[in-house]
């Protein structure tokens, strides 16, 4: 339990550094460390597959792309565009909405029905695969179609309009 509190402290500490560091590249690097602490949380919950997938997908792929874009733009403290107050207010409102949603969902969840205690082996690859492809097959396939449609949309947006050339 002490280990959990230590790791939880590190997660919160580094995620605060993500927000407060001036240099965007530093922000991304702190975000990578935050994701690493989340991976440790998954391991503590005995969710090996989720841990390693978080490691590969978030730390190894998505964050590389974030870093890639930031390095390509090469943003500095000086060249950072001034944000208008309207955008700042909108950001605060959106953040609060997310907070309310999260708190509401966690309250509804309650800790009387913890999924992890019923079957501590659920996080292993074999058990997770059986659950995903049996009990939750339809949501699983629908979420993969969602990802595919997002990809198609991105390609469509990036493509030049043939009429305008």
């Amino acid at each position: 339990m002490n280990l959990f509190y230590f790791i939880a402290f590190l997660s919160i500490f580094f995620s605060l550094l993500v927000i407060f560091s001036k240099n965007p590249v530093y922000s991304v690097l702190y975000l990578i460390v935050t994701f690493f602490t989340l991976t440790i949380h998954y391991i503590l919950l005995n969710a090996q597959f989720l841990a390693i997938v978080n490691f590969i997908v978030y730390m190894g792929a998505i964050m590389v792309l974030f870093l890639f874009v930031l390095m390509l733009l090469n943003l500095n403290e000086d060249s950072e565009p001034m944000k208008s107050n309207l955008i700042k207010v909108a950001g605060v409102v959106a953040g609060m909405c997310l907070l309310v949603t999260l708190v509401g969902s966690f309250r509804a969840l309650g800790d009387s029905d913890p999924l992890i205690l019923k079957n501590p082996e659920i996080g292993l690859v074999k058990n997770l695969g059986k659950v995903l492809f049996d009990e939750f097959l339809l949501p699983f396939e629908i979420s993969s179609i969602l990802l595919l449609s997002a990809m198609v949309g991105a390609v469509l947006l990036a493509k030049k309009d043939p009429k305008k050339i």
Binding site: I52, I56, G60, A61
Partner: peptide
């Protein structure tokens, strides 16, 4: 998957 993760890092 561990090897794969290390490679991606």
């Amino acid at each position: 998957l561990y090897i794969f993760g290390v490679v991606s890092l």
